[in-house]
Design a binder for these strands. Structure first.
Lengths: 353, 353
DNA sequence: TTGTAGGCGTTATCAC
DNA sequence: GTGATAACGCCTACAA
């Protein structure tokens, strides 16, 4: 069926040219006479010849391979974001002619060791970083070693301007997301809209909180913001537990920093509120849980982000100047997905969600 | 900081031996005098030398790289299984000295094309197949081309014995899972326990159904099984919609083929049942949704499966006889995770789930 | 025990 | 426009 793999030499012999001409026909078509080029390309097609990546890599020092760390999804709910990202990234890389190699690491230091290893042994061309945070040792290391990379997530430094960062990154505009979520609740007539955030914060949660704050201030309700906002751990139970305090402070609707918290809060509200009052809660990340349960949520365009990351990275790897390709720093606007509550104790036959 | 990458030659020169000796010290230590070996290894450590995968691959025709298709997670809920599997697989492969390369494909044919491509250009050593089904063209193709692979999922053929299959596979014992789920409900005093399954079935759902059937028959309730069982699409809404009919037939508890269906059914039961009757529903796959909502579910040991798959595959790739390594065909028992319903309209402050 | 020679498949360089 | 020559870094013989 499929022949033994042909090589440049075997192919060249079979059509009576030198192996160089075959290589040229493939890599520098203009340097070879149209007639012979056709002859070569035809033979290439017919033989199903594919250049060996290893040999090419040995010669060119480029592996056409990118690295990505698979982070242990602590929370299965939010892990879904990584899943979607990974998918889009795989496809985008594939389309751009790159392969994607995975590695897993428990912390940043271990990741650095893996990157170092992969760089040495497999000659990876570049890396995609996720979950960047203030004082990230990985970006420092990569820059120091002149390793090409792009990050999903802006550099969350409090002192430096992320848009001045030396490395490209793509991020989601969390503030814009919560701002539109808050706006949506305002439109529905809510005034005392609370914010449920993360306790140990590293920038990302602050960003989301600021969108809520902005919307509230724009609506002239900026006075008592601290009163309307709480921070907790990121899980369902914590979300439920936070509800009581917020209700006591007159909160009638809630913008949450994550779907886990939103789900917890929603369930709890459902339990304590009178049946005719549908809880008004918006989550963040638009995870499958939100979809399953009928929870409104802010949907970050992760797939788009993945594609853009590959775009910047491959542009950089092609050796093109940073100035003329895709933007080095991109902030993507999320979309608000509005749903009618479902699967929470009320009969809603076959909703369209 | 880090020097320019040393090579066998540069290293050999620096300590005054031939490059061969270095190679031997590394690959065949017994062939080199302890004294020199030590000297070489010391130099290796100090220089941070790592053999180049490309060069080695070119010579040995082994890439130490495995391929895995990333399937588009149709249902975000069940996609979580793939996520966990991928994780464990990455780690296991890493530990076994293999790298993992991802590719994405929309269907089996496209996957075959990708495999073919990767085989030619990147010389992948083997593949991990997921989602096998009856008449799977991929297994046929791989066998025909003598490509090493292991599958997550048994060959779902109706005619042939999966345990006679020529390729190794690891699978979850779905029947055992639903059987224990049914047993659990029987212990709680339920008799008319329904089964909610998939409509277009390709073996996997049948397997799960058979466990329920077995348990019911063992309990002497085998008479009206058809009446107690339904099949639908795999989504939350379908699960909810199926409830009415089952209730009409006197069902008091439900074993479901997936968490999506279980969630839908649960919510619907919650709505129509009197408040003091907690719905008795068990799902399958133990997804984050089940955890978040407090739904009992059958938990497949995916991480374990991943490790075993790498074990068989690397055993095979090491050229060891199939007889003496890990079992070629393994069926893994899932565990039942029992939860108290949560997040569904009742106040359960801080449950331990 | 150690060293020498050759080649894996490709591309860069430089003659012709 | 085309083809010879020389690497890239490694490993597997075989010779010393």
């Amino acid at each position: 069926m499929t022949q033994k793999k042909p090589t440049l030499v075997s192919l060249a012999e079979s059509i009576g040219v030198s192996r160089q001409t075959v290589s040229n026909a493939l890599n520098a078509p203009q340097r070879v006479k149209p007639a012979t080029r056709e002859r070569v390309l035809k033979a290439v097609r017919e033989s199903g010849y594919r250049p060996s990546a290893a040999a090419r890599q040995l010669r060119t020092r480029r592996s056409m391979d990118l690295g990505l760390r698979l982070t242990p999804a602590t929370d299965g709910i939010n892990g879904a974001v990584q899943d979607r990202f990974l998918h889009a990234l795989t496809e985008a890389a594939q389309d751009a002619g790159y392969r994607l190699t995975l590695y897993s690491a428990r912390d940043d230091e271990e990741e650095i060791r893996h990157i170092d290893e992969l760089l040495h042994v497999a000659d990876l061309d570049g890396f995609v970083l996720t979950g960047t945070h203030a004082g990230d040792p990985r970006t420092a290391w990569l820059q120091e070693h002149a390793v090409p990379f792009a990050a999903f997530g802006r550099p969350w430094s409090r002192t430096e301007d992320p848009f001045a960062s030396a490395h490209p990154w793509v991020d989601i505009d969390g503030a814009a997301g919560t701002e539109s979520a808050t706006g949506f609740l305002l439109e529905q007539g809510h005034r005392r809209i609370g914010f449920l955030g993360w306790r140990p914060d590293e920038g990302l949660g602050d960003d989301r909180r600021s969108g809520w704050q902005r919307a509230m201030e724009a609506a002239g309700i900026g006075g008592s913001l601290d009163e309307l906002s709480t921070a907790t751990d990121d899980d369902v139970a914590a979300g439920a537990a936070a509800v009581e305090g917020l209700l006591a402070r007159g909160v009638t609707a809630l913008v949450c920093v994550s779907d886990s918290l939103a789900l917890g809060a929603f369930a709890q509200l459902r339990a304590v509120l009178p049946a005719e009052r549908e809880p008004a809660v918006v989550g963040f990340d638009d995870t499958p849980v939100a979809a399953a349960v009928g929870l409104s949520s802010v949907a970050p365009p992760v797939a788009d982000a993945a594609r853009r990351i590959i775009a910047v990275l491959s542009h950089m790897l092609a050796g093109r100047p940073a100035g003329e390709g895709p933007q080095q720093h991109q902030v993507l606007k999320p979309a608000l997905v509005v749903r009618t509550p479902y699967a929470l104790g009320r009969v809603v036959p076959r909703p369209g969600g």
